[in-house]
């Protein structure tokens, strides 16, 4: 399989605190990798390192053969190839749904307005939000905002999509509408790295699971093995903390 993203021995530390400790894994084209782990285990930091929002102290990250270097001038060219969706949506409040989606393609990729809007409308239709095209973000529900944020990222045709706890800020009844979009993308063969607390969703969408604890990869495997036969005590404990029947 084509390897698209390679995380190689990545170490991230804030002064004395080591957040990521020699983390290595790779992501193949079309693969969905889901990272779970307790709060503060470094999941989000890992995603932020991939998109060079954090500098790393050791190791490297390679995207399609090109090493991502946070100090590099042309960082935006690398980020253009990676899509990222945040827990807090981060739609641009002064732009309508349609403008949120077309801004980057028009300014960064220099795509014409008409073509960009056409593509945006097709994506909005896919996530059931065509009639919201001229709404401002504050007029949308959390679930709608997050769906817009996802399709906004897709507008840039990213090679890899990073989803950072995208349902963590949502009311329970809105989680599903967002996760269904992600499942749909997985079925289409999108390459994604997902950080989430929704274990049943993880199981449904993942090709491979990674359990991160204390900045290290503790366990890695297929969803079946991961959930049904966890190999380590720490993962067993972690999975157990999500169930309530003794």
């Amino acid at each position: 399989m084509d390897e698209i993203l390679h995380i190689n021995n990545v170490t991230k530390a804030y002064e004395d605190l080591t957040v990521l400790d020699h983390v290595s894994f790779s992501v193949n084209k079309g693969e969905v990798v889901v990272i779970v782990g307790p709060s503060g285990c470094g999941k989000s930091t890992l995603l932020r390192c991939i998109n060079a929002f954090e500098t790393i102290q050791d190791g490297n990250i390679v995207l399609g053969g090109e090493t991502i270097n946070p100090c590099k001038e042309q960082l935006h060219a690398v980020r253009e190839r990676i899509g990222m969706v945040f827990q807090s949506y981060e739609l641009f409040p002064h732009k309508t749904v349609l403008q949120n989606m077309t801004l980057a393609p028009m300014k960064v990729k220099k795509i014409g307005r008409k073509a960009a809007e056409q593509e945006a409308m097709a994506l909005l239709e896919r996530v059931g939000l065509t009639e919201k095209r001229d709404y401002y973000p504050r007029q949308l529900s959390g679930g709608q905002k997050q769906r817009v944020a996802i399709v906004r990222a897709l507008m840039m045709h990213p090679e890899v999509l990073l989803l950072d706890e995208i349902t963590a800020a949502l009311d329970p009844e809105m989680v599903r509408e967002v996760l269904e979009v992600v499942i749909d993308l997985a079925a289409e063969g999108r390459t994604m790295v997902i950080v989430t607390h929704e274990l049943s969703f993880a199981r449904a969408v993942a090709d491979r699971m990674i359990f991160l604890d204390g900045g290290r990869i503790v366990e890695e495997g297929t969803p079946e093995a991961f959930f049904d036969a966890p190999g380590t005590e720490r993962l067993q404990k972690f999975l157990h903390s999500f169930t309530y029947q003794g």
Binding site: N51, G83, M84, L91, A104, R152, M156
Partner: peptide
């Protein structure tokens, strides 16, 4: 970060 993540 959202804008930078879009490649701006």
């Amino acid at each position: 970060e959202a804008a930078l993540a879009l490649g701006m």
